[in-house]
Design a protein around this nucleic acid. Structure first.
Lengths: 127, 127
DNA sequence: AAGTTTATACGAATCTTTTCGTAATTGCAA
DNA sequence: TTGCAATTACGAAAAGATTCGTATAAACTT
């Protein structure tokens, strides 16, 4: 069960859909327009392709289509994360985590959350 | 000072160079060949392009060129990591870290290391 | 039902990345 | 110096992703 890895444009569309829930091309196009210059038919075509690839499902509602992600945000995040770990961090999730922590965008509060998450994991089964 | 983001193939070449140190096309080609099917001139061309882009430096040594990364592994890791945080994790490094931890590839020992790294950070200045 | 609006479908152009064939160059050996 | 093997340079094809113009279809208005 592996999905084709979404391209950058596709990921942007998935993000909108995950955040907004089921949406028409029109809505997604407007959302994308605010951050970059993109034609309506371009957005449409992308979503049609994503539908063909199985990244989106859709349903006709009168004249328009309502699109929805066919994959969970978590699954895609996992996929992209694993790929990055493999290609850029020699397969070591720890290296990646350390880097991310070092990028000093994490607040004290978040650090505490992460720490307690780790403690929960340590209590668990990770051998 | 921002480098062009390396493509997947380019990243694979950078990895080899970071690991092996300065190398010829021949050596890199052989290394890549072990994990996938790639022609010699393909590898050569990629490295030439990377040189043009400023990702690699090179030096003539007799008839051959010796290539070297022009950017540090850490810089590229940071670049790719930040991009992933932005495009897939809504800008939240914490979300990414949690996911990475959850992917259960991290050993108890590594968890401990991460935890003590966090403690060091907490002692520091992160506001 | 004809015209208008809004949406989809289709096809092709463009751009980027990857690929490799062929030609030119270099260094060495005979 | 001529010939051979190794290497680079060049150009263009192939594959993938993005873009959009134009045509078609659907629903609403009058």
């Amino acid at each position: 069960m592996s999905f084709p890895k979404p391209t950058d444009s596709e990921l942007a569309i998935l993000q909108e859909l995950w955040q907004r829930g089921p949406s028409t091309v029109k809505v997604i196009h407007e959302a994308l327009s605010s951050s970059r210059d993109i034609g309506y038919t371009t957005a449409l075509k992308l979503m049609q392709i994503m539908h063909e690839k199985g990244l989106l499902t859709r349903e006709r509602e009168g004249k328009t289509h309502i699109y929805q992600p066919a994959v969970s945000q978590e699954k895609i995040q996992k996929q992209l994360l694993n790929k990055l770990v493999d290609t850029a961090f020699q397969g070591s999730a720890m290296k990646l985590i350390m880097q991310a922590l070092g990028n000093e965008k994490t607040s004290i509060d978040e650090l505490t959350q992460i720490k307690s998450f780790i403690e929960k994991l340590e209590g668990g089964q990770n051998e």
